[in-house]
Simulated assay, not measured.
Amino acid sequence: MRGIPIASMVIGIASSPAARRQLAQLLGDTEAFLIVSSVDQAREFLGGVEAPSAPPARPPLPVVVGEVVAGPEPSASPPALVVDSDRRVVRWRDREIELTRLEHDLLLCLVGAPGQIWTYERLHLTVWGNEHLGRGSDIHSVVRRIRRKLATLDASATIDAVRGVGFRFASA
């Protein structure tokens, strides 16, 4: 690979605005740098790079869709769909079901931004780590399996298809 310039970039992770400012000052002499607030943002920027095989320093928090409302009756609060990344399961009320890696990663994308449309291209890049080619039967197959599992749980959350564009998650 002679003659090909190698570009380098420093990616800094800082969770608070003050820490990001301090990190920007420290990296000020660096040719190129990016500061993000989480490891997940860094992975998203890098195009879905898989995590290293070593366990993370702290386990990721499950993604919860829904709202828990304090009140006298437990039935007054809407149920939440929970994607547990540690165990790779989806939980609805008191029931849960296992997910494959592709199902987990795709569902995590969708529930992370309820109502937002994820294009086929963006889902393919984020979940599979490569560019979307063809008619999207691989994405449709995974969505069909997730829908079946949500139906098995009797979850009222759905994955809506946006014809010719992609999918979006709709919580109850």
Rank of each mutant, 00 (worst) to 15 (best):
R2A: 15
R2V: 14
R2G: 14
G3M: 11
I4H: 11
P5T: 15
P5D: 14
I6M: 13
I11D: 05
I13E: 03
P17E: 08
P17S: 08
A18N: 09
A19V: 00
R20A: 10
L23N: 03
L26G: 06
L26P: 01
L27Q: 07
T30R: 12
E31D: 15
E31F: 09
F33S: 07
S37M: 06
D40A: 15
Q41N: 13
A42Y: 02
A42C: 08
F45A: 10
F45H: 11
G47P: 11
V49L: 14
E50V: 08
A51D: 05
A51S: 14
P52R: 07
P59C: 07
P62Y: 00
G66W: 00
V68M: 04
A70D: 12
G71K: 03
G71R: 04
P72C: 13
P74S: 09
P74Q: 09
S75Q: 14
S75A: 14
S77L: 06
P78L: 15
P79V: 11
V82K: 02
V83H: 02
S85T: 11
V89K: 02
W92F: 10
I97K: 04
T100S: 13
L102D: 14
E103Q: 11
H104A: 07
L106T: 04
L107K: 00
L110C: 04
A113W: 07
P114V: 00
P114S: 01
P114C: 02
G115W: 01
I117G: 02
T119K: 02
E121L: 03
R122Q: 14
L125T: 08
T126P: 10
V127K: 03
N130R: 13
E131C: 12
E131G: 14
H132C: 11
G134I: 15
G134K: 12
R135L: 14
G136T: 09
S137R: 15
D138W: 06
V143P: 01
R148A: 13
K149F: 05
A151R: 14
T152Y: 12
L153Q: 06
A155C: 14
T158W: 00
T158M: 04
V162Y: 01
V165S: 02
R168F: 00
F169D: 00
S171Y: 07
